[in-house]
């Protein structure tokens, strides 16, 4: 990233290869829409080039790129584009599972995504970052501008809320 900051913008291709799937998945979990997720992912990498001078090497790069992704997301929410949620990528397959088990797992995954949609945007984002992206609380704190402890407490509460929605509203069968 420091090389990009120093003007070697061609190196952004390396960062794109390394991070685009992760960023795309972050958007997919939030919007569940391929077209919007692709637009936003492209937008993030364009912004990396545009705002390269704001990067400082003491900052964790992953946190920095997700901060850009988050801002792109906030802009998208402001646009309020109509979306059709699409879960067709949640097609599980495993050599060890039979068809029925695969179907049950797929159904549970879809129920989980529906429950996520019922959470307020910031709680949904917290779950995506901590649970799906497996980010450390310290990294998430950097992205959300909160303390590490606050992220931990909020994440704890949100997972409780998610369970409650799953069990009581979605009728999730565990």
């Amino acid at each position: 990233m420091l090389q990009i900051k120093n003007g070697e913008i061609g190196k952004t291709a390396v960062l794109f290869d390394r991070y685009h799937t992760s960023i795309y998945n972050y958007f997919m979990k939030i919007h569940r829409n391929k077209m919007i997720s692709q637009d936003l992912t492209q937008n993030v990498f364009e912004k990396i080039i545009k705002y390269r001078s704001s990067y400082t090497d003491h900052k964790n790069f992953r946190s920095w790129i997700f901060t850009i992704a988050r801002n792109a997301n906030i802009d998208e929410h402001r646009k309020k584009r109509p979306t059709d949620a699409c879960d067709d990528y949640i097609t599980l397959s495993s050599k060890d599972d039979n068809a029925q088990v695969v179907m049950e797992k797929s159904e549970k995954s879809k129920q989980l995504m529906r429950a996520l949609d019922l959470l307020p945007a910031e709680e949904k984002e917290l779950i995506v970052l901590t649970k799906f992206e497996k980010m450390k609380f310290a990294q998430v704190a950097e992205i959300l501008g909160m303390t590490e402890n606050a992220v931990k407490v909020k994440s704890h509460r949100t997972i409780k809320k998610l369970r409650s929605i799953l069990v009581n509203d979605i009728k999730y069968e565990y």
């Binding site: 291709a13 794109f16 685009h20 692709q38 992912t41 492209q42 799906f132």
Partner: peptide, 26 residues
């Protein structure tokens, strides 16, 4: 079960257009 389901959700694959669009932009 919830934590297992979270772990089981597959990574969504990106399509080639994303890469080629970014390549053109770059």
């Amino acid at each position: 079960s919830i934590y297992n389901t979270i772990d089981n959700i597959p990574t969504a694959e990106t399509c080639d257009t994303l890469k080629s669009n970014f390549g053109t932009f770059l």
